[in-house]
Structures are given as C-alpha cells and as structure tokens.
Write a protein that binds this DNA or RNA. Sequence first.
DNA 1: ATCTGCGGGGGAG
DNA 2: CTCCCCCGCAGAT
Length: 438
Amino acid sequence: MEPRDFDSDNKELLSWDINDMKLPQNVKKTDWFQEWPDAYVRHVYSSEDRSAQRHLSSWAMRNTNNHNSRILKKSCLGVVVCGRDCSTKDGRKIYLRPAICDKARQKQQRKSCPNCNGPLKLVPCRGHGGFPVTNFWRHDGRFIFFQSKGQHDHPKPETKLEAEARRAVKKVPGASSSSSLKRKGSPETKSPPSKKPNQGSLPLTWSFQEGVHLPASHSGHLMANAPQPNALNDCLPFPKSYAPAGPVDTTDLASLPSTLDSTKLYEKCKLSDGRIHSSDLFQPPAHGVYSDYDELQTWSKNSALGRNSLNEPCCPSYPFPLTNWPCDFFPSQNSLEPLPQQIPLEPPAPKPGCHPLWPNPGGDVYEEKIPMDFTSYVPSLPYPGPQEDPFLLTYASHPHQQYPLPGKSGRWDFDEEVACMGLDHRNSEALLSLCPLR
DNA sequence: ATCTGCGGGGGAG
DNA sequence: CTCCCCCGCAGAT
C-alpha cells in the first residue's frame, strides 16, 4: 500500500470520534476489553467481544438517554464510601459500588457501612467538567467502538462481581460474610461466590477474572476447590499485612451461596472454541501488595493492549520488587473470546514488560506487565482521587470480565500507570484469593 | 431484586 | 441544538 493510504488510514484509526458519521472499518487489530477505562480514551473492540457487547465497565455506569439510538451513552455514578471515612483493619477504605438502578441506589444509601456501621455516602463522579464521566458505545460493522470522556475523580468502586458476591454473602446468613468481610476489611470484600470454579475442569482457573476478583474471602472458597494448592507460596510474597490474617476461612466460602454462577465464570475463561484461554488462568500478581486501582488499570490497559501473552511468552520472572508491583495485578478484562487479535489501536504498542505471570495449567506462563509504556495518546491526567489514598483500594480492581491475556501489552496511559504504583491492599487480597488457587 | 437499554420529557446554556 | 438528568417500561439476569 501506498504510504499515503497508510497514513490516512492510520489517521483515521487514531482520530475517530464516536459521533463521526463513519467510523473506521479498516481496523487491523481490536483492543482487549478494558475493564476500567478512564480518561479520554477510545477503544475498538471486536463485535464478538462479549464484554463489549454488554457494554460492561467495572465503573458503576448507568444508562443515560442521549436520544440517539445508535450511540449508547452511560454516565458514571461514582462510588459509595463510608460517611465516617472509616478504614478496615488493614487500612483499607470502603469503596462500594453504587447500585445502577435508582431505586436500588436510594435503598443502598440507607444502609450502613459494612465495616463500621456508619452512614454511607455516595461520592458522585465529576470527572468530566464537573459532570460524570461518560462512556459511549457504538456498534458498527464488525466492531464495537468505545469512547470515554472525562477522568474519574474518585476511587474505583468494587466491581460488579464483587458487589454481587457481597450481596450474595449477605443473603446467606450462614455464610460468614460478615466475618469474612471484616476480616478482609473491606466491605467489598465479599467475594463472589464463585461457584466452584473449577468445577469440572476448570483447571485452574477459573476464570481468573471472575475468580480473581473475588474477594479474598472467597478465595478461600476458591482455594478449596482450587486444584493447585500451592499457589500462595509460589506466588506470593505478600507482606504480612496483606496476607490473610489467619487462616483463610474456608467455612465462609463453603457457605457461600452459589448465587454466582460459576459456570459463567468458567465460560468467561473459555475461548469460544471451548479452549481455555491462557489468560484465564493467570494468577494473581505475585506481589504482595495489592495494586490498586492503578494496577488494575494498568492491567486492564495492558490487557487491552496486549493480549498476546499467549503468543508471546513473557517473562516468567518478576521484575518488580514486591512492593511495587506493577499494576496489572489482575488481568482485567479480556475478552473471552478468542479474539481476534487485539491490538491497541491507538497507541502504538509500547514495550512489553514482564510481569508476574501466572502459570497456567497448561504450563504456559503468561506474564505481563509492562513496566511502562509511553504511548499514551491520552493526555495524561493526574489522577486525583484514588491515588491519594494509599490504601484506597477496593478490590475492584480486578478484572473480571474476560480474560485478557496479559501478554505484553503496552499501556498507554503512562502517567496513570506510574501513579498507580501505589497499590492497594485489596488487590492483594484478591491476589490471595487467586493464589490459593494455584 | 437488579441490571440494562430505550425513549419521553424537562431544564439549562 | 446540545447536554444532563429524571422517570417509567420492559426484557434479561
């Protein structure tokens, strides 16, 4: 092709706007699903990507009527925090997921903090010129275009799965949800009742995603089912503080409601053709720290970019000090699907870094994390919120959606990433959860 | 019980 | 006009 065409194509691929009459159809590589899109980013997903089809986001986004049936608009609801600003024993803050449904949200606000019983407070998102961050979804041809406007100015809430898990736990009195929560500290800690993830054959993996993001408590659960026991040891060097205090209460786990459908999780892990995605298997980052929100983000981003882990082997070793793990702790999203390859459209790919990997059952390892990349086409924004509190984390960060492979990915929001080095405990919990599996 | 998408309406700039 | 938000409905989870 001529350079000219190439240039114009390239420009088209990099400069489209969700409102354009025509969106690029010459997309070479689609992105991995991003669970925590932030800032003014755009992504092009395969129309086969389930998460994209569902317009998922780990941020609590509600549908907003923009009177345009072709473009779905969603605005961020922010995060529900403790009105007393309490912290868990491990120093974590409470960051609950606002209910999407108005009625449910009102009801939610009448409830009390799972940690201290204090009043809950909804922290609205004002990251887009004082208004909530908005996400736009548009299906066009073989792709699903995504555009985010604004940068979240609040911590990440727990993920949908985490919130569901928490609810599920509450429903089951027997389930020691409370104990678990407390243990973990964070409210969100609830874990999803993943059902037996491994059921069947999930070897390992339950989907990492879902599994992963399970709160630690569940992890126990997971552990129980998990095929591989040594995970923790192998994987994590957690600082004591992050480590689950005491024995993991498997009881809780056991009692968890099976509300969550493990099957679903499993499903996520599987490739469309039935194979399990390596990414699915991955494990928690080895670092003991939970990365936080940032990490997750990174992860997501990475995953988005990368996806290749399968194809490309990464480094098996962990390059980072435990304390600062790269953000990618959990792979967040990924699409389950077989993916079309995804590649980050926007930013050129950065360099891959290595990061913890999770061995997969098969033996492959994936790893990911890139120490950094620069390609951000996105204006880097300072992340005010979340990062401020070193502990803020919520579990949320993990990805749950699909399995991304962490492969190499590049990340574009470099700043964020860097910032993210602050990790969150919660993530660590999540890690714990995961690790057990292994 | 919630989530999610749709679409009617209203208000502000 | 555009953008934001509220509300209710209906189908899906």
